[in-house]
């Protein structure tokens, strides 16, 4: 059974990390991240052609992580596959022993490395969540019985700080009603606002919420987030703290540690996005008393 699901059931505060499959076939660099992050997390998200750029499939990379003894969260976006391929990959996940799946819309191809590609979006994420829930009941999306059902632990994305909140909340409700049992959020920026909204998600939808923590390790990272990442904006007081520091990485670790500590009473877990600085993740968790 999924360790992540078990941890939720026990009421444990969960920790997830993130690794990116390679742009090629050699998984050794990814596995080095896995060896660093695996021992200190409950599960690792495995991105699916993130940013609409070509990578090894999340399915293959997730299996490699499972084989190494760690627990992946197989990410599946609606961008690159039609409903046949999406269902086929979810069935493959079942056969390969993958249980956690995070279902996402996916970034638009025109922002990626193959801007000539056709964005498929045959299904949207709400519809795909419903499909995954159906596969768990032994039915394909047309209601036809399967030879063997999946046992997927279905998650979705939420963006608690985005406005207009009423629309975001309705969207999250649609996903929860479709069958998502846990949510992973966009990076936390304003803890107070985030806390208020996560409380609403947890109480009204009965879902588990894992809060996203982004390691703001330099002024350059902040610029990148503000300019390139849709919907994310680093508040001035945080940006000034990092930019003004003689050791920005040290301050970023301090900030992430504070956030993790503050979120222990707010969310069901944290998802740490270290942007390649995997070695500092254990330090953050130790600092927050989570080792």
């Amino acid at each position: 059974m999924s360790r992540l699901r078990e941890a939720f059931e026990r009421g444990e505060f969960v920790i997830t990390g993130e690794v990116a499959p390679p742009h090629g076939t050699d998984v050794s660099k990814m596995m080095r991240s896995v060896e660093l992050l695996g021992p200190v997390t409950h599960a690792l998200n495995v991105t699916d052609n993130q940013g609409a750029t070509l990578h090894l499939s999340s399915l293959a990379a997730s299996k490699a992580i499972l084989d190494a003894g760690y627990e992946p969260i197989f990410q599946q976006t609606c961008r690159d596959r039609n409903r046949l391929a999406l269902q086929s990959d979810l069935l493959s996940a079942g056969t390969l022993g993958l249980e956690n799946v995070l279902i996402l819309t996916g970034d638009d191809p025109r922002g990626g490395d193959h801007p000539q590609a056709k964005g498929v979006f045959d299904l949207d994420s709400t519809q795909l969540i419903e499909v995954a829930a159906g596969l768990n009941r032994g039915k394909d999306m047309n209601g036809a019985a399967l030879e063997g059902a999946t046992n997927l632990h279905v998650g979705a994305a939420a963006f608690p700080e985005a406005e207009p909140w009423d629309i975001q909340f309705e969207r999250a409700r649609g996903k929860a009603e479709a069958g998502a049992v846990f949510f992973q959020t966009q990076a936390v920026m304003d803890i107070d606002l985030f806390s208020e909204r996560v409380a609403e998600l947890r109480s009204k939808l009965g879902v588990k919420v894992i809060a996203g923590i982004l390691l703001l390790k330099s002024g350059r990272v902040i610029d990148f987030i503000n300019e390139k990442l849709a919907g994310l904006m680093v508040p001035d007081e945080i940006a000034d703290r990092i930019r003004g520091a003689s050791d920005p990485m040290g301050v970023a670790i301090e900030l992430a540690t504070e956030q993790v500590r503050a979120l222990r009473d707010v969310a069901d877990g944290v998802h740490i996005m270290s942007l390649g600085s995997d070695s500092v993740v254990p330090q953050i968790l130790r600092g927050a008393g989570l080792d």
Binding site: T105, R110, F121, D124, Q127, Q168, L232
Partner: peptide, 20 residues
Amino acid sequence: CPKGLLNGPCGGMWDGKCEV
């Protein structure tokens, strides 16, 4: 919707604006 989603918005919507 640039992604043609029937159920939206996607995660990129910010302040009511389109991500793409």
